[in-house]
Nucleic acid binder design. Structure first.
Length: 267
DNA sequence: ATGGCTAACAACGTTAGA
C-alpha cells in the first residue's frame, strides 16, 4: 500500500486549524505530523481532524508552547511520548503504523530552537539544544537495523550549505553553526538514516522550509532555511517515491512561518 | 550590523520562537 506522510510546524494548531484542514482536504496525506501545536491535549482540535477522516490521533501537548501531534487516516497500533534532557516538555511522539507484517515506526520531533547566542556556556537554550541532539544520537543509534522507520519534524538545524540563503553569513547564526550541523550529521550517521528530502533534491540546489516572519517580503528576500526534515531508514530506501515542499503555504493568509513537506512511499 | 514579526497567556507586557 502506498503511503504519504506530511510534516508541518503549524505554530499554533488552534489558530490555524482552518489552514490545516484546507491542506488535508487538498493533499489527503495518510499521516500528518505537527509541531508547535501550542496547546494541551484537551484543547487539541481533534473533532476537526476526525471529520476529515483523521480519526487516529496521538497528541503530546503542553500549555502555551511546543507540543507535537500525529493524526492519521491509517490505524496507529502503538505510540510512545519520550522526554529528553530530563525535562517534561512535549517535543517527541512516535507511532507505529501499517500494523501488518512490516509496520513502520514514525518519530515526530520538535528540537529546541536554541536561542540567539551560539555559546552553550552563556546560553542555556543553546546548551539544551546540543544536549537534546546528543540524546537523540544515542537513543536512535542503529535505528536502521531495527527495520523500517521514518523520522520527521522541525529539527531547527539547516545542515547543508544550500539549506540556508547564505552559508557564509549564517555560519555564526543559531541553526547553521558548525557545532549544530556536525551534530545533526552525527545523528543521521549513528542511526543509519537517509535524508529523504535530499534524496530527491540535489545538495547543490537551494531548499528551504522556513522563512522568517520578520522579512518585509519573505518571497522577495527569500532568506529561507531548511529546518524541517524527513529521514528514512535503509529498509525504506527502495520505496522512496516523491517529495513535495508546499512553498505556497507560506503565502497563505496568516501563515505559519514553516511550510508543510510531504513524502510519498511506494507500496 | 540592525531590526524586523507572530503567538500564548491567571494576558495589555512578558516569554518564546529562530
Amino acid at each position: 500500500m502506498p503511503l504519504s506522510i506530511a510534516t508541518w510546524n503549524i505554530n499554533s494548531v488552534r489558530l490555524r486549524i482552518d489552514l490545516v484542514c484546507a491542506f488535508l482536504e487538498a493533499e489527503r496525506p495518510d499521516v500528518l505530523c505537527l509541531q508547535e501545536i501550542k496547546c494541551i491535549e484537551g484543547n487539541f482540535p481533534a473533532g476537526a481532524f476526525r471529520k476529515l477522516g483523521y480519526e487516529h490521533q496521538v497528541v503530546h501537548g503542553q500549555k502555551g508552547y511546543h507540543g507535537v501531534a500525529v493524526v492519521a487516516k491509517v490505524p496507529i497500533t502503538e505510540h510512545v511520548r519520550r522526554g529528553f534532557c530530563g525535562k517534561d516538555d512535549a517535543r517527541h511522539v512516535a507511532v507505529k503504523i501499517g500494523g501488518g507484517e512490516l509496520p513502520i515506526v514514525l518519530h515526530n520531533f520538535y528540537v529546541p530552537a536554541g536561542g540567539d547566542e551560539p555559546n552553550p556556556d552563556v546560553n542555556e537554550k543553546f546548551a539544551h539544544k546540543l544536549a537534546f541532539l546528543e540524546e537523540m544520537k544515542g537513543w536512535l543509534r542503529g535505528a536502521e537495523t531495527l527495520g523500517p522507520a521514518i523520522l520527521v519534524g522541525d529539527l531547527n538545524v539547516a545542515p547543508l550549505e544550500q539549506d540556508v540563503w547564505s552559508h557564509k553569513q549564517m555560519l555564526g547564526v543559531v541553526s547553521h553553526t558548525p557545532v549544530e550541523t556536525q551534530l545533526l550529521e552525527a545523528v543521521i550517521e549513528a542511526g543509519g538514516w537517509i535524508d529523504a528530502m535530499r534524496h530527491f533534491v540535489p545538495p547543490e540546489e537551494k531548499l528551504y522550509t522556513w522563512w522568517s516572519y520578520r522579512a518585509a517580503d519573505w518571497e522577495a528576500s527569500n532568506r529561507g532555511r531548511r529546518l524541517d526534515h524527513m529521514w528514512v531508514t535503509s529498509p525504506l530506501r527502495g520505496r522512496l517515491l516523491g517529495l513535495e515542499v508546499k512553498r505556497e503555504a507560506r503565502g497563505w493568509n496568516r501563515p505559519s512561518d514553516h511550510v508543510p513537506v510531504i513524502l510519498r512511499l511506494a507500496a
